Every structure is written in structure tokens, then in C-alpha cells.
Amino acid sequence: MKKFILILVLILHNSALAAEKDSLYISQYQNQLQKLSKYEAFFCDACGCAAGNGSSGFESLLNPQFIGIKYFAQHYKAKENLFTQDLTQNQYFNTIQVWGKIPVTQKLSIYGSIPFQFHEKKTLQGDINISGIGDANIIGIYEILKSQNEYHQLNGGFGIKIPLGRFDEKGITGVNPSFQLGTGSWDYQLALSYKFQKNLFALMLNTDYTIKTENKKHYQFGNQWNYAATGFYRLWRNENSILSGKLGLQGEVYDWNKQFAEVIPRTAGSALYGKLGFEVSYKKFSLGSELMLPAYTQLAGGDIEAKSRFSLFINFGI
């Protein structure tokens, strides 16, 4: 773990030293980008419980406003039942979502997403599959501060999750209660994002906190805190296209789930991921991908282990 963090810090440090007198942005968008906020927001892609609600966020530097489609996959290992110590059950959480980021004023933008979930877990009794629409998200993002040289920028956000996804009360009896299409609850989110950008290099620091409420079945998933540090470096550019790579860390901390206001044991936990990805654009189109692998995982009291995450998106600038 210490070696992983040390290598990451050295790479980001060397990237900053290697920056030249060029920009991460395509020249044809430069004037427009100077007027629009460049920010990052976080959101929950699945349901909001101890595992399966990974927050991948979006970190596009190439389109300040867009509509697009994103695929997000998560893999976990879980105990088959409470009477064994082995993590034998594979659980796969998959999300395809329509998302967008639209400016309202020069400083205020609105982000929204509507996901479609298709999840699977492989048990000794056979595979179990669920699919359907998930919970929608709406987040307002406000530019709090931007330096005159535009090297520094601070944004804050407030969001709400709308419970469109179906919550199955039977699903909470398993080892992973997050095997759901939705939480069944209205949840609220506070976010803060800092960006430093100079020449070929950019660094984003983000944190957000989600407050989860009790649903109609008297079940309440634990509150969630996400944090991330991501470095971007422009690798290649021509008149119409640009390619950037990114490298970073992302962590998640989950509070206890509750039912009828009583804490449910072995539902809290945390995980830390290393992530590596890229983004490429051509005119108004951008394509990006990201792979996340766990550096540390302690979910549901050790009953669940995070394995990997993968995302792929394509956006169209508007």
C-alpha cells in the first residue's frame, strides 16, 4: 500500500515538473472555456449502501457542458452465507446511464443522470439477476472561487437523489443489502471540488457527503463519504483532437445501515482504490475510460471484498 502511494505521488510530481507552455484544452474552445466553469461532480451510480453504490463521478476536462452515455461496472466478492469464512460469491453491478451537464449562468450549472441497472450474483443455488431503472440524480454546482490567472478554482454543490429504482425488502436479508435497483429513499448530497491547472498538468481534489434517509420500508442505508485526488496530463494534441491521461486515488467510507432506527451490524466499511484512465476528444465528441483496483477494502465487516471497477463514456459537447 505504501509503495503504491509513493509511486503515485512521484508520477504526479514528475508530471507537474514536465509541464510546458501549452494547454489541456483544444484551441477552438479556449474562449468559451474561459467563460464557463470547469468542475467535477460526484454522484452515486447504484444504490447507496455498503457495497455496490460506487461513486465514479465524472472528470472530463474537455467538455464544460455535455450530454452523454456512460457504462459503469463493479465486481465484488461476498460470503455465500454466514456459516462460512470464504468469500466465494461473485457479485456484478452494472449501470448504463444517460447523463448531462448544462450551464444555467456563468457560475451555476446543473448536472443530472438517469441510470439503468442490471446486476447479477452467482450463488450455489444458481444465478440471481435483477434489472431496471435506478435512482436519478440532480446536482447544482456553483463556482465559489476562481483565481485571476485561472490556475485555481473551487466549486461547491448540492444535490438530491430521486428514488425511481425499485427497493426489494427481501434483498436486505443477504450478505450484501446493496443488491438493489434503488434505495427507496430521498437522499441529499453536499460536494466540494478544487482544481489546479497549469500548462499540460491539472490536479483535482474532490470530496462529497451523502445523507441518506429512511425509506417506506423503514430501512435506511448508511451515510457515505467519498474523496478523490486525480492528476491529468495532456499527452497529445492537434487542431481538432486532444488526448489526456489520468492517474489517482479514490476512497469511500460508509456508515451503518439501520432498520426501524436500529443499527444493523456488519454494514459499515471503507475502501480505497487506485485508478488509471484516459480521455480523448474530437471536435465536440469526447471518449473516456477508467480502471479502478482496490488498494484497501474492508466492507461489511469483511464479509464483502471490492475487486475492480471499470467505466466507459462518450459525450457530446453542447
Rank of each mutant, 00 (worst) to 15 (best):
E40A: 12
Q34L: 11
K35E: 13
G251S: 02
G231E: 02
E20I: 11
Y209M: 10
N94Q: 11
F232Q: 01
F42V: 07
L82E: 13
L190D: 07
Q30W: 15
L293T: 10
P103M: 00
I138H: 03
A268P: 04
Y227C: 06
L33W: 12
G68Y: 01
K3W: 07
I162Y: 02
F4E: 14
E59H: 14
N176A: 12
I314T: 13
E59C: 12
S311N: 15
L108Q: 05
G100T: 00
F285Y: 13
K38D: 13
T207M: 09
K70G: 01
F313Y: 14
L145V: 01
S113M: 07
D45S: 13
L235E: 06
L190A: 13
R266D: 13
W256C: 04
G231Y: 01
K107R: 11
I96C: 10
Q65D: 14
G231V: 04
G57T: 02
E120Q: 12
Q106H: 13
S311W: 06
P163W: 05
E239V: 14
S270F: 04
W236R: 05
V175I: 15
P177Y: 06
T230C: 06
L82W: 07
L145W: 13
T84I: 00
G112N: 06
F93T: 08
H152D: 05
G48I: 08
A268G: 02
L62H: 08
G248A: 08
Q250P: 02
S185T: 06
P103A: 02
L287E: 14
G157M: 01
L154Y: 03
F158P: 01
A228G: 11
Q106C: 05
D303E: 14
V253E: 14
I69W: 08
L249C: 08
V263P: 03
V9Y: 01
Y194Q: 02
S55P: 03
L62F: 10
N63M: 03
Q259G: 08
H75I: 05
V104E: 08
T105P: 03
I144F: 15
I26M: 14
K216R: 13
S56M: 10
G54M: 04
K284G: 03
K77P: 07
N137A: 09
E290T: 12
Q65M: 06
Q153V: 02
L293P: 03
R309L: 14
E279M: 07
